[in-house]
Amino acid sequence: MKRIILALTLAGFAAAATPVLAEEGHDTPQPPRVKWSFSGPFGKFDQAQLQRGFKIYREVCANCHSMQMVAFRNLADAGGPGFSEAQVAAVASEYKIKDLDDKGEAVERAGRPADYFPSPFANELVAKAANGGVAPPDFSTLAKARTYERGFPWFIFDIFTQYQEQGPDYIVALLQGYVDAPKDFQVPPGGNYNKYFPGHSIAMPPPLQAGQVTFDDGSPQTLDQYTRDITSFMMWASEPHLVARKRLGLQVMVFLIVFAGLMYFTKKKVWSAAH
């Protein structure tokens, strides 16, 4: 009976889930899986990729998108893009930071490593007004703030495969998802057709074109490369301690498994007296 109920339940889920997936598939396709250096239990950020991503952010995205919770100093943090202290100071000094002088007058001074990335717009209302009524989202947590529906049974498999990169996959797909609108789709004014954006009409025009940003390390200057690099950088900005987390996680796992094994034998030994 137990098994029958279990089987029926699973079958019920599967039956109920299938039409949903199909329906969603027709509406917004699932983003394709991208191979990320930071996925899985041994994942690490690719330093060179983060540096390229930062270049893209600085030259393209930062014109509209803020990144208020990331400081220049973070660029030198362990597990990140791996800039040196001197490079960070140099980068910071290229930015103008609003500050007050001794007399309380508003001034602009050169940035310091402790400063946070300045925002392109003075405040959210200005950002809205300048971008057709929708403020460009802040980059600080954006890669973790986006996802797509995995559906049954994939969301259960994800526990075991540790698939956590729905956000980055979605962003890559979105950045590459600017295609011609189908004939029957009326793109509203101020919108751009995007295959992966829910509702398909996104305010952001296609932000990246091949060849737009020059890479010094010889990486291909293609849209595909750009989108993966900027997304990798966004993931780092959202989760700067990802590398430390996964490394400590591995140590904790090994410890717990050894400890559990010892506890098991201790338990057996103790209980052997009771039988």
Partner: peptide
């Protein structure tokens, strides 16, 4: 630990 370290979100 599996969730806290590998699937925190």
């Amino acid at each position: 630990a599996w969730f806290a370290f590998y699937l925190p979100n």
